[in-house]
């Protein structure tokens, strides 16, 4: 079972690795860690507490904490979308912590509304369950970074290359052909 202590520890060590700080407000921080724990319990992975998860990991991979958008957001706004991770100036209170605009592409966000991975546990009997099949299709593909050669297998390329920090546009689909 995932504990709050474990969630906190994970965030702390990740902040340290990247030179970030965790939100200085103990109540706000506690709410975010609680949210991450809750998401890990209900979805099986720590989806971003401030975003709508689809419940399908492959689809939510870019918003699984720490999300794809954290580093560019901390760089531009001093905080990630949820303000879990912040820069030193914000941690020290020199700069106020304000809401950060959503960087996740809107088409991707919109699709999350039509995907629901879990079948309702207590759906009242007789109620129709709507499953938008064609909209929930997730195709995994191989992508490579043209700058450093990093390869990943996911729905779309990462927002930035985790290795060399190249932008998403530097990624191309990798097609494997086997010639007989």
């Amino acid at each position: 079972m995932i504990t709050l202590g474990k969630v906190r520890q994970r965030a702390e060590s990740d902040a340290k690795t990247h030179g970030y700080y965790l939100n200085p407000d103990p109540n706000f921080l506690g709410d975010l860690l609680e949210g991450l724990k809750r998401n890990e319990e209900r979805y099986g992975y720590p989806s971003c507490p401030c975003r709508l998860a689809s419940g399908k990991f492959e689809f939510d991979r870019d918003i699984t904490c720490p999300c794809d958008y954290r580093d560019p957001d901390v760089e531009e706004y001093g905080a990630c979308y949820c303000s879990l991770y912040v820069k030193k100036e914000l941690y020290e209170g020199k700069t106020p912590i304000l809401p950060v605009p959503e960087r996740r592409p809107s088409e991707k966000q919109a699709r999350a509304y039509r995907i629901l991975a879990e079948t309702p546990a207590e759906e009242p009997s007789g109620a129709a369950v709507v499953v938008a099949q064609e909209l929930s299709e997730i195709t995994l593909r191989l992508w490579y970074c043209k700058q450093c050669g990093y390869v990943c297998f996911r729905e779309e390329p990462p927002y930035v290359c985790p290795i060399c920090k190249a932008k998403r546009e530097m990624f191309a689909e990798l097609k494997i052909r086997t010639d007989a």
Binding site: F28, D31, E34, G35, L36, P49, C50, R51, L52
Partner: peptide, 10 residues
Amino acid sequence: AISTCAWCKL
């Protein structure tokens, strides 16, 4: 709101 969101709670 999102039930787990700290900004929403605030």
